[in-house]
Design a protein around this nucleic acid. Structure first.
Lengths: 149, 149
DNA sequence: TTAGATGCAAACAATTTGCATCAAA
DNA sequence: TTTGATGCAAATTGTTTGCATCTAA
């Protein structure tokens, strides 16, 4: 049930998408950043900085940890990435497309995505009670797979 | 609008509650742990480990960082405390009483608490779709105070 | 050309651990 | 008394930064 990749197969189209993302974030389009962006766009999971670095080095072995963290930070800051903190370990990243929330399998660590317009509507109702406007939210469900019976 | 303290004023009653919490977690009732538990039970906010340590040292200056982290970890593991990750900085702790979620003021860092039975019901409906039972969840709304009109 | 990006290594921040000593049960 | 708890300091983990050197624009 792996999600389809977010990048087209055609190498020119891929390069164009990556370029758009980096330039859109106000960044120069360098080789390390292209590798990092490609890694994120290809990721079907929610890798942490270490995993992003490892995968990026498969494309270009000279990429440093510092560049990885710096690039992740800028892209997240500019809204191209979302960061999450699922309990222990470092921050985990994913390309920010349509907003969605997460269901984490506490036994396997697998992460599923979902959206619920109903929940989002209720959230704003709650914020209203406090006199607030919501600028962001995070909802993480932790669950166990139900035994087949 | 500070929440009332979770501990009674009477010193004997306070000691009994703290003892109950520590013993209930399978821990020996030591002076450092009593101080840490008292700090958490008295906390009206959501202190991080550093703040817990500082407040505990006001009770007993000899308390170490290691004991603070160790005690927080066990109490959280046993379900007496909840931990949160509101963006940057270390984990933040609070006594686990009735479950509730949080609304964080992105400008001031203030944290408000709320519960919504409606949202919780929808959460289980979503987990059902994946064949999961929810064992825990975390919902954090980030908001800005609405300008007074 | 030149401002911005890089790798490296050192610095930081948050948390965990080994160990000799201490104290609750 | 003996098993678990403590403080200390060192080790880990995750992340950030200074700096001399590159390189995209």
């Amino acid at each position: 049930m792996a999600r389809a990749t977010r990048l087209p197969d055609h190498p020119v189209a891929r390069a164009a998408i990556i370029q758009h993302m980096l330039a859109g974030a106000g960044l120069r389009v360098t080789r390390p950043r292209q590798a990092i962006a490609e890694v994120l766009l290809l990721a079907w999971d929610h890798p942490d900085a270490e995993a992003v670095l490892a995968r990026a080095r498969a494309i270009d072995p000279s990429i440093s940890q510092a560049t990885t963290y710096r690039t992740l930070a800028v892209l997240a800051d500019k809204g191209y990435l979302r960061t999450h903190n699922f309990g222990t370990g470092g921050a985990r990243y994913e390309v920010a497309e349509q907003h969605h929330d997460h269901l984490v399998d506490v036994d396997t660590g697998a992460v599923m995505e979902f959206v619920s317009a109903e929940i989002e509507a209720l959230q704003q109702k709650i914020a209203d009670r406090f006199g607030y406007d919501i600028v962001d939210h995070q909802l993480v469900l932790f669950g166990k797979q139900r035994a087949k019976g």
